[in-house]
Design a protein around this nucleic acid. Structure first.
Lengths: 179, 179
DNA sequence: CAGTTTGTTCATTTTTTCTTGAACGAACTG
DNA sequence: CAGTTCGTTCAAGAAAAAATGAACAAACTG
C-alpha cells in the first residue's frame, strides 16, 4: 500500500531520513570527496564515507542512495571498497534485516587499512619485479655497455631496492606514530 | 676489426638516440607508470620519470618524444609537473641550446617535493574549512539537535581537527626518517 | 511455495582525465 | 632580418574511470 510511504514526509523516522543534506553534511561530504581524491579514490567513496562520518546513526544502503542521490550500484560498490580497507563497518540493528553502516574514525586503523589494501600489495609485487630487472640488466650489460654504463645501471637498481625497503620499514612506523 | 667505441657518446647519434626502448628501460618505465598511478599521477609522468631514472645521460624534450612516442605537448607538460614537485631538474650541456633533464633520485627530496606540492596545500586549505564547519555546526545545533546529537557533531569536528594536526606533524617527521 | 526485500554484479552510458597536435612566442643563427 | 629551433599553451579528440540501472541471487515472510 502506498499509504505506508507517509514516513518519508514528516516525522523524522528513527533513522534520520530527510532527503536533503544539511549544510554541515554537505561541507563534510565535500571535504572527504576532496581528501579521498588526493588518494586516488572515486568521488562516491568520499561521499559515502563523509556522510557516514558525520552521521550520528548508522545508515543503510538505501539511506545512502536517497540522501546522496547516487545509484544503488554505486552505493553497493563504494561500501564494498570501504569495508575492504576497513574504513566502514556494518553494525547489527535489531529488528531490521538491512545492513547498517558506520564510519571507522580511528586514524590509525584507517591508515593501516589503506596501506595494507593499496600500498603493500604493490611493494610486494615489487620484489619479483626487482628480480626481473636484475636479470635484464645483466643481459643488457653483456651486449653493449661500457664499464661506466654498467655501473650506472647497477647503482640505479640498487637505489630502487633501497626505496622499496625504506617504504617497507615505514609502514609499521607510521602505525606506531598514529596512536 | 670492429670499430671500438669506448664512450657511449658516439655509439649512435651523439645523445643515445635509438628509437626503441631496451627491455630494461621498458621494465623500469612500466614500474614507474604503476607507482605513480598509485599516487594519482598520469601515465605520461611515469613514463618520463622512469626513462630519466634509468638513463645514464640527461635527455632532451625531443629524446622523450621520440623514445617514448608521446607528443611534444605531453612531454612538455609532464616535465613541467615533474619539475614542480622537484622530481626532475634541468642540467646545462655546453654547446647545446636545448634543456637536458635528469631525474632526482633522492627519496627524501622526492617525498618532500610531493608533500609540499600535493598534500600540504590541501591541509592548509583545511584550516579555513574547519572554521566554516564550526560555524555550520553551531547554526545547525540551535535548530533541531538534541544534546547527544550536538555532542556527537562536536566530537566529530574535534576529530577532524586532530587528524589535520597529526598530518601536519607527520610531514616533517617523514623528512627526517627518509635520510 | 509465491511474493518481498536486500544487496551484488556487470554491460552500458556518462563524466572526467589525459593526450594530441597545431598555433604561437621567444631565443637563437647565419 | 628571414629562417630555424625550442619549448609552451590550449582547444579538440581519445582514452580511462566512474556511475547507472536492469537483471539477478539470496534471504526472509506470510
Amino acid at each position: 500500500m502506498a499509504v505506508q510511504l507517509t514516513t518519508l514526509a514528516d516525522a523524522a523516522p528513527a533513522t534520520a531520513e530527510q532527503a536533503e543534506l544539511s549544510a554541515l553534511e554537505v561541507e563534510v561530504v565535500d571535504l572527504f570527496v576532496n581528501a579521498l581524491r588526493l588518494l586516488g579514490m572515486p568521488r562516491s567513496l568520499g561521499e559515502i564515507y563523509g556522510l557516514l562520518f558525520i552521521s550520528p546513526v548508522a545508515l543503510t544502503l538505501d539511506d545512502l542512495v536517497t540522501r546522496l542521490k547516487i545509484s544503488k550500484g554505486s552505493a553497493s560498490q563504494g561500501i564494498k571498497m570501504l569495508k575492504q580497507i576497513g574504513a566502514v563497518k556494518a553494525t547489527y540493528v535489531s529488528g531490521d534485516r538491512r545492513d547498517h553502516f558506520t564510519a571507522e574514525t580511528e586514524l590509525k586503523k584507517l591508515a593501516v587499512g589503506f596501506l595494507n589494501g593499496q600500498v603493500l600489495p604493490h611493494l610486494d609485487a615489487g620484489e619479483s619485479r626487482m628480480g626481473r630487472l636484475k636479470a635484464l640488466q645483466h643481459e643488457n650489460s653483456s651486449a653493449d655497455a661500457s664499464v661506466e654504463t654498467r655501473a650506472f645501471y647497477e647503482a640505479r637498481l640498487k637505489k630502487l631496492d633501497q626505496w622499496r625497503n625504506r617504504a617497507l620499514e615505514l609502514a609499521p612506523l607510521l602505525g606506531r606514530i598514529l596512536d
